[in-house]
Computed example of a mutant assay.
Amino acid sequence: MVLTPPFEPMLAQAAEYVPGSGVLASGFAAEQKFDGHRAILFTPAGPGGRLLLQTRRGSLVHDRFPDLVAAAEQLPDGLVLDGELVVWDTEAGQLSFEALQRRAAARSRTATALAAKTPAFFIAFDLLQQDGQELLARPYAERRALLENLFSEHALTAPWTLCPMTTDLAKAWEWLQSWTDVSGVEGILIKPLTSRYLPGYRGWTKIRRRDTTETIVGAITGTLTRPQLLASAATTRTAGCVRSAAPYRCARRRHGRLPSTSPRPPPGTRGRACASRRRGGVVTSWTPPSSTPAWWPRSAPTGPSTAAASSATRCASSGCAWT
């Protein structure tokens, strides 16, 4: 079977912490999760064809990324890759989700102009078809080996990037702790080494980092059960008391009810405000001061580790690098 668009990608379910070594005893891979747009890339079956770029929802958007189309000559025919679209802001010197959104909405001349200012990169994390032969039934470990061989054999360079992967739980824990300080990296993906690629199925686990801080809630708008805005003050060692007002997404909206462990934030009380990096520091949840961040592992990882399959692709044209 030859894969063609529209194609439904495999999905991930959200989790709040890294599973323990016992849960992952059968073997796993951890990949860095970038804050971009999911995309499926199709190269032509033969000469004269063109590269196609499909979104998660099935829309074709290759006309909005002419820089990727121009670089398609590096890729062999009959190839299908699953990955993440990201954009590098040359002025800011970092990945930019806002610039990616602008590029995704651009057409014609605007798309070409934006490509020069904010170049796009395709971070590949799965190989679904090679030489016209689909690989969905192959285990993840085999598909990953073929993907790494594709990059080395064809000496692929920017804008094609190999997603960093490790089978070392300690390394995955380190990524979640430190790499998420980098703009554009929001967490990790956990994938069983033996898993097949199942379109539409949530067989992977995604873990996003969320930072917490002590805050004093002074007032809210909306109701206590469904607050809309928090007026809060946070005390820091260097800046003293910092005041802010930010939209608040109630736990009831995410889970259908307020968990008993997360009481409503009454005005004038202390608690922890959890801010998502992708939302630019916007408060998205609140927990009492006795709680610890839900996403953080409860203990250091234990057990044997295996050598990580590492990749270091440097984007010479933009100065960005992932290791």
Rank of each mutant, 00 (worst) to 15 (best):
S262F: 06
W88K: 02
P297H: 05
L11R: 13
T118N: 15
H154D: 01
Q54P: 08
S311W: 02
G48C: 08
G271F: 10
W175L: 06
L128R: 01
V80Y: 02
A104E: 05
W296I: 12
W175K: 03
G83P: 03
T4E: 12
R278L: 14
Q94N: 11
S96R: 05
W295G: 01
Y248K: 04
L162D: 03
S310D: 11
W88E: 04
P47K: 09
Q94T: 13
R278C: 06
R314D: 06
R243I: 06
D126S: 13
P76Y: 10
G187S: 09
Y197W: 09
R277L: 13
S311H: 06
W322M: 12
A120D: 01
A275G: 01
R107M: 03
R50Y: 06
L258F: 01
I188H: 00
S291C: 13
A170K: 12
A25P: 00
T118D: 12
C315K: 01
L135M: 14
R237Q: 13
D67F: 10
R210I: 13
Q228G: 06
R143D: 05
D67M: 09
L95K: 02
A273K: 01
W322T: 12
T284D: 12
Y197D: 00
L79N: 07
F34W: 15
G281F: 10
S232D: 02
S311T: 14
L147T: 07
C241K: 13
F7E: 03
A300D: 12
G58M: 12
A231H: 14
P139V: 00
T112I: 06
P289Y: 09
P263V: 10
T225P: 00
C320E: 04
